[in-house]
Design a protein around this nucleic acid. Sequence first.
DNA 1: ACCTGAACACCGTTCAAGT
DNA 2: ACCTGAACACCGTTCAAGT
Lengths: 178, 178
Amino acid sequence: MARNKRVQDREQKQQEIIDAARLLFLTEGYDETSMSRIAVEAQVTPNTIYWYFKNKDELLVSILNAELTRHANEYMMQSEKELSERLIWVVDQLQLVNRLVSTVHARLKFSPELKEWHERFHTMVEALFRLELQQIGVSADQMETRVKIAVFTIEGLLAHQLPEPEKKAICSALVAKF
Amino acid sequence: MARNKRVQDREQKQQEIIDAARLLFLTEGYDETSMSRIAVEAQVTPNTIYWYFKNKDELLVSILNAELTRHANEYMMQSEKELSERLIWVVDQLQLVNRLVSTVHARLKFSPELKEWHERFHTMVEALFRLELQQIGVSADQMETRVKIAVFTIEGLLAHQLPEPEKKAICSALVAKF
DNA sequence: ACCTGAACACCGTTCAAGT
DNA sequence: ACCTGAACACCGTTCAAGT
């Protein structure tokens, strides 16, 4: 029982740190958020964070994993929707955490763990596109090229913030027959 | 004469700092290169750099401008080549300074001057693509979408380092009729 | 096991003072 | 005009010491 209490506390505190960091990273930015600021918000001292997380980048990875499992669940719930609709939903969700996406790309070179996470994520999104493009009859020998173009373009959309109509036009061009 | 000497010295010293920083940014990376390291390489003290450049980001902008004017000249020399060939040449050149490209994207949010430079650069590259796509008969109403897809995909190629054949395939898909 | 106070090494940048 | 020595504020991270 005492043991359970401890585990409970541990997970809770960890979650509080993750939540505080997530909010700050999204609103203020990763670089602009110091560890001590996160600590204040999570009501601990800066070095306590290092008890739960190896460093700032690993904290980011934890946030991303939480984000991902949450969204993966929501995604599964939409089995009735068209694949293309689900795809646009994914893009919209990514848009919402745009700042995290930029940070991931910016920090790839500093953190092997982050790089690994990023690769796993890319594999997932590419698999999604492959399904979609198969449905509209893209041939196997054109498939990989089309998948890469689609993924890169989504990344560009997230990075550059285009006006909504142009964004929509580009999205549908990506999943149309060339 | 004394005056000319001074101007000469000034430009030379400035150029030495730019050259040292360029090399270090490309080989070690922007974040990994401290101002004092640049100073050592350029044979000045760190704060002397601040006499010539407002800050580290402005130094980066100076490097980029030097890079751009140099390449713009080389580009002009190739008027005999096919547009598509020149396009691939541009991509190859960008590949060579890949690390600077990543740094520009990573630091957009910190430096308005860098952001302005980046926008000018994008406008140039988009104009290039527009010419190319016009030649292969892309219609006006599809033009902007196609241009954006092409530019974003190039950015993705630079960021992700694909195997050469896949890179080539993607490049030609971009300038082919959809 | 969990948390802290205090310190470390390092960073980009500033500024008064020199020539 | 040009350059420097010395300092500033701040950062992520570490570690010995406490409970």
